[in-house]
Nucleic acid binder design. Sequence first.
DNA 1: TTATCCGAGGGGTGTTTCCCCCTTTTTAAC
DNA 2: GTTAAAAAGGGGGAAACACCCCTCGGATAA
Lengths: 212, 212
Amino acid sequence: MKYSVVIVEDHILLSQALAGLVNGFSKFKILYLCKNGRELLTRLKDPKNIPDIVLMDINMPIMNGIETTIALKEEHPQVNVLALSVEEDEKTILKMLRAGAKGYLLKDTEKSILENALVEVQETGFYHTKDVTNLLLGSLNPKKENKVVLKEREMEFIKHACTEKTYKEIASDMCLSPKTIEGYRDSIFEKLHLKNRTGLVIYAIKNKIFIP
Amino acid sequence: MKYSVVIVEDHILLSQALAGLVNGFSKFKILYLCKNGRELLTRLKDPKNIPDIVLMDINMPIMNGIETTIALKEEHPQVNVLALSVEEDEKTILKMLRAGAKGYLLKDTEKSILENALVEVQETGFYHTKDVTNLLLGSLNPKKENKVVLKEREMEFIKHACTEKTYKEIASDMCLSPKTIEGYRDSIFEKLHLKNRTGLVIYAIKNKIFIP
DNA sequence: TTATCCGAGGGGTGTTTCCCCCTTTTTAAC
DNA sequence: GTTAAAAAGGGGGAAACACCCCTCGGATAA
């Protein structure tokens, strides 16, 4: 009996191509393909559609891999999730693993590694490359005071600051006094060691607070 | 006799998976796979390695699809190039087509469309979806004054403007008077209808002049 | 020869940045 | 339960910076 695999991936060509690969592996067969997380969750309502392994892309338009994994694990904790992504962004990988993924695979790998990862996940319960293992170890002792806490209201201000609005305009948009806005700005500058608004904009974009 | 296909794609998993798909098509077979453009050009020095079709990814680390296609067409104009990308960025598509690609395929397509595209490219010389055709038509009559010409020196200034430097500092970095820098800024603001430096930063990032 | 582009500058206004200062409310500690 | 201390909102004023005019010479090109 082969293990059943479901692929959740928005790029249909990659999805179908991967299906071909997996069906070529001796121990695995594809159950069906999904274009996004929502489709998977809908499909899973039928018990016949519950697979052994879900091969999950992280970046998807409708419902991303992290949200989907959390929802999936709540309903069907026995299903193993293997994350698949081009992203090497540390935060994303950690979020995905915290959501319950049993492994993390880069799209830039050999097919034999994919097969190996599937076997490992199904038989030992997890699969990780050296890179991801190192990342996990690194996340255990976070470099002192690395994470700066930005408050909700400050985040809101930052988004406004990433436009052509003056602080006065931002103030009236946020229903606050211009002086309060200046207060936000000053404390953010201090926290993040920034010198001016341009620096703030770059920071916001780098940290995905504002997406241009 | 089957037509030979070479895949140039940096994501090995996708590359191998695609190879599986193509080998499953009745009229095509994979000759070999390449991880980037440079690898392809090296391989092509041996006449035995010249394929009928090259399935080319656009975003690659070493040598991108556009550069590679230009170089390939110079040496082997008879080889048909089918571009493959997730990018729907108009400029990129047009660049690729101008470079000599005979078709443009989104990764978000069905495998039957891939097969159809390969057949069309080989037998009629081109393949385009409705989207790309519309894009081509649109590019013929560019909406009046759409493209703003930025000079080399202005581009350089914009990159500096996307940092925490003051204009005075930018001036000394570019070995110009602060007043000249102000001149650059003002003319750019006018050309691009911007109100302030924040707007310029956002513009630069959107248009990939500055990559954060 | 007349444009046009480029670098440079004068001067004025408004904005941003950076210091001080204050009250009120919420949270935590003693 | 009082006290202490953050957190949230607002303010004055000065200096630096950004923005916006308009000018002017020299090179370059039509």
